[in-house]
Structures are given as C-alpha cells and as structure tokens.
Design a protein around this nucleic acid. Structure first.
Lengths: 248, 248
DNA sequence: AAGTGGTCTAGACCACGTA
DNA sequence: ACGTGGTCTAGACCACTTG
C-alpha cells in the first residue's frame, strides 16, 4: 500500500497526480479531443486509489482542461468542434443571447514586440511577432476589430493564406488553428477592459463615426503552466452588444 | 442505513444535503460569520455519511456561500470584516493592484422603478425604490460614480443618515449594510459592460471633461436562490484603471 | 488533549452509453 | 453485456487550531 509518507514530496497525492496528468497533456501523450485512460487504469498506473485519481481529474475538469462524459470517458478539452469553441467570448446582444460570430480576415503581417506587448508575452522587447487583424461580425454587423500578436517562434511556417483560410472558415477559431497546426492549446486568458474613442481607422472598419465610444479589451491568452502565448487588443462597438460577466 | 432509493426525490443525496444547508442559511439558522456544525454533526443530523456532507459543503464553498478554515470549522461567508469584502470589485490600477476603495456619499432618495430596472429586479414597473448615489475613490482619485437602486420593501426604515454614515465609514461596504441591518446576503452578481461618453453631470462628479469615454457597468446582485436584490449603474473613468477579468 | 477539516483507501452499487 | 463515470459508505490517519 502506498501512503503519503512514502512519497518524495510533501504535496497531497492528488496534487501530484494532477501534475502527472497535466504533464501527459502538455507533452502531447493525450491529444485534444482524445479520451484519456479510465480512472481505474490511471489508478493502477500511478499506484493510487480510484478516489485519488478522481479528485485530481475533478480539479482539471474545473479548470477546463478535461471534459467528463458519463458512460463514455474523460476527454482532453479542445477548441475544435465541440460547443465550447467560444467560451472566452463574453459578448452578448441586447436580448442577452450569445450569437455565434463570423470572422472577416483583414490582414496578416510580421513585426517586432514593443515594450508593453513584450512584457505581457514574456518575450524580449523587439523580438519577432506575427500579427493578425480581423473583424468579428455578430448577427451580421461588424462589432469587434481584433489586432492579434503572437511570438513568431511559436508559429513557424505560418502564412497569410493559411490564416485567411482558417479565419474565414465557418466557425474557424484562431485557438483551434493554434491547436491543430502548432500544438499550442489555450487554457486560460485574462482581459483588461477600458473605454476609448474610435479613431478614424477603427471607425472605418466597424462602420461607425469617429469618436464613438468603444470598449478596448486587452487579452493575454495562456497555455499550460500559465505560459503566455497570444496578445490581442479588441475594439468593441457596444451600441447593440455588451460584455457580460458573472461574479461569484 | 439510508440509501438513495429511500429518499423521496431522485436527486443525488449530496444535492439534497446542499439544499438543506442552503435553507438553513437563508432561514438565518446560521448567521453570517458564524460557524456551522461540524461535518460529523451534520452527517448525524441528516443521516448520511461524512463524505456526502463533505461533498455538499465543497460545492457551497465553491459558490462562496461558506468558508472552510482548517482546524477551526466551516463558517458562513460574510461581507463584513474579512478579506473578501470587495470580491466583486474588478477594478485595478495600471500597476495591476486592486487598491481598497474609499466611498463618498453623494445622495439618497426614493423613486419608482422604470421598465428596465423593474425587469432586472423582478418587480412591477412603477414600484417603490430606494436610490443611493456615491463616488468610489481609488488611490485618492474619484474613479467610479454609482447610481444604486433597491426595492424599498426590502429596506424598511432606511434613512439618508444611516446610509451616509455607513457609506462614509472606513471600509464600509453597502453589502455589509444590507447584511447586518436587513438580513439580505448578496451571493452573486452579473455585470453588463458598455462604453459611453461622460455627460455634464457625471463628468463634474468624476472631475473629467464632458465627452470623456467611460465604462458603463450595469450590475444586478442576487441573494439566495438567484433572487435579484440590487441594481446599480457604475460609470468608470479608465484613464488610470481598468476592469480585470479572468477567463477559464 | 480534543476537535476540526484534509487526505486516502477499498469496496459497493447506480446511471449512462455503446456494442 | 460491458465499460465508463457518478454516488455513497465506513474507517483510518494526518494537519491544523484552540484550550
């Protein structure tokens, strides 16, 4: 029998199991959308009881890294195909519905990180970035302009055509592109929201008057171990939509 | 021994326990800040095992209705005194710190619910409301103007002097006022955020130019069983602060 | 020392989905 | 029929807090 004392570390067993599972996820042993071994199989593999594996998995489910499906198994969360594709999109129309967005590709390019973006992404100032610009349409109206930047080192071989094809595809999210083409899985994100005025360029893209008040949302998206991967600035026209947040 | 089949409902046992605990909370059997019976005591009281009580409590802790303190006991969450007083305040300064706010009382009054507010509060249009206006200062600057409304029926006997004293008090939050004086405990809230332009009145109160872009945050706060209790509109100057949101 | 929550186990049985 | 996750139990021992 394995007891807590025999383990090298002083962490609770379920915490250690949690980290072992996380490592298998980030190492790619279990791919997005795939089923991981059953609780009993993992218990045997790690030499602990099913209850301990269960507790570890429960916490990973709460963190949206795994998905349980009763009677079928436990699966690696994915940004492709399932209903959770837009779980980071907090915009709703005035009726309170979260309409599915449709993207329009605007531009693709390369540039260097300024100090602010470099700091958020944890890279050196001036390092190479990939940039993507697009419009999000909700209910047929241009509502969001996105300016997106990622370290170029993470997306070797990316091209404008690839991005354009994926962005314009039906329900093609960028996070599913990162996941399927570059083995980068977005787990969490943080957003900083301020109010701003539309400048001439953004006003033109969103079809509003210059000087219109907009939300300016800075988002940093993270992969495993809280490593920042993507930075974006979103400008949102809130005439017919709002940002929705639940507080607990 | 009690088995699942003997229970009148088909809900899992821990769900039933959860509801029984929630009822004791909303009935006031256990007051805010007080310790609830130990897991073993509750297990005996409800005729289930400790593990089942534990699971029920775990979920209530995740919903911020209870707080565990190892070695001491499990306590009813409160908006008074402990460090969670401002857990709904998502504003940070540009350095990323969540400074503690200081409130300035602006006004108190009574009015009638318009259609929009009545809908959010689940009351009839035209029913009596209490209104409170105040300014929140962060790091010494007026950053937020709040216009707050509650059904008058919930706050019988409230007076301008009571509110003014409480609002201006050191770290006196309105939610602790509701809790201590009116037995209303705020459990959760939802916020709808839009961008707007400062009108002359709000600009004057916040000390900014008319036409400055502001966040307009509509908040509805709920007590037990998702019953809406308070509506407020906050206007936020985001020159030196931002709204921070974590996505999972 | 006593009481509390925190961890872990072993085993039973149920509910669900697939073959 | 079988395998999966979901619930529930009983009991052991640990870690922390207070008297």
């Amino acid at each position: 029998m394995i007891t807590k004392q025999q383990t090298p570390s002083f962490l609770p067993l379920y915490e250690q199991i949690k980290r072992l599972i996380t490592r298998s996820l980030s190492d790619g042993e279990w791919q997005p959308g795939a089923m991981i071994p059953s609780e009993m199989a993992l218990a045997r593999r790690y030499g602990v009881s099913q209850g301990t594996v269960r507790k570890a998995i429960n916490e990973l489910v709460a963190e949206n890294m795994l998905v349980r499906r009763q009677g079928r198994g436990t699966f690696v969360a994915t940004h492709t195909d399932d209903g959770t594709s837009y779980r980071f999109l907090h915009l709703r129309n005035l009726a309170g519905e979260q309409a599915y967005p449709q993207s329009d590709f605007i531009g693709f390019g390369r540039g260097k990180a300024d100090a602010a973006v470099a700091r958020r992404l944890g890279v050196r100032s001036g390092s190479a970035l990939v940039q993507i610009q697009r419009i999000l349409n909700l209910s047929g109206n241009a509502v969001v302009y996105d300016d997106i930047r990622l370290p170029a080192a993470l997306l070797k071989g990316i091209s404008s055509a690839m991005v354009e094809e994926h962005v314009n595809a039906y329900r093609g999210t960028l996070y599913s592109l990162y996941e399927t083409q570059y083995q980068i899985r977005i787990i969490s994100a943080e957003e900083r929201i301020r109010a701003t005025l539309a400048d001439a360029r953004v006003a033109g893209l969103l079809g509003v008057m210059e000087g219109m008040p907009l939300l300016a949302i800075e988002r940093v998206a993270f992969t495993y171990k809280n490593q920042p991967v993507e930075w974006r600035m979103s400008y949102v026209n809130t005439e017919n939509h709002y940002y929705f947040d639940e507080l607990n």
